[in-house]
Simulated scan of single mutants.
Amino acid sequence: MAREAAAAELWGPPRLLRFEGRDGEATTLAIADRDAAAWAEAIDARAGLATLPGLALCLRLLALVELLARAPALAGLYRIGPEGAEFHPALIAAAAAIPLDAAARFDAERLQGLISRSIPAEA
């Protein structure tokens, strides 16, 4: 979806997401990077960022892409190229199973631990 949006130059606007905490503290997340905005625009068009499932999908996908940039141990579990992205099912399952932290990021060690339990060592 994001590749199609980028090819059509539908980058999408920068977005600010504000979450009110139970303690009254607010957390604001900015989706300002051009590629991240394209992902958000594509997800908004398909699933709707005004819906909880659409917002969750957007934040989890952006968190996964961010994680891949800082977790070299995951390199064999995905491929991103001009034709699109492919992810190992265990990577997607782990990203769907663990929570995001307060900064909307995945805990790399926790995610890798979950994956290591789901993929046999000889794989």
Rank of each mutant, 00 (worst) to 15 (best):
M1C: 06
E4Y: 01
A6V: 12
A8H: 06
A8L: 13
L10T: 00
W11S: 07
G12S: 06
P13N: 11
P13T: 12
P13H: 08
P13E: 13
P14N: 04
P14R: 04
L16A: 12
L16F: 02
R18M: 08
F19H: 02
E25W: 03
A26S: 14
A26G: 09
T27R: 14
T27D: 09
I31L: 08
A32Y: 02
D33K: 05
D35F: 11
A37H: 00
A38K: 02
A40V: 04
E41L: 03
I43T: 03
D44F: 05
A45R: 15
A45H: 12
A45S: 10
R46S: 12
A47C: 07
T51D: 07
T51R: 13
L52A: 14
L52G: 01
P53W: 01
G54I: 05
L55V: 05
A56D: 15
A56P: 00
A56M: 09
C58W: 00
L59C: 09
L61C: 10
L61S: 10
L64Y: 03
A69R: 15
A69N: 06
R70H: 07
R70A: 13
A71R: 14
L74G: 02
A75W: 00
A75P: 01
G76T: 07
Y78Q: 08
G81I: 03
G81N: 15
P82K: 11
G84R: 11
G84L: 11
A85Q: 05
A85E: 10
E86D: 14
F87L: 15
P89A: 11
A90I: 06
L91D: 11
I92C: 04
A93Q: 14
A93G: 08
A94C: 05
A94V: 06
A95H: 04
A96C: 07
I98W: 02
P99L: 02
A102C: 02
A103Y: 00
R105N: 10
R105W: 01
F106H: 01
D107I: 05
D107H: 03
D107M: 02
D107C: 08
A108K: 01
L111R: 02
Q112V: 15
Q112S: 13
L114C: 07
L114M: 14
S116D: 15
R117K: 14
S118L: 13
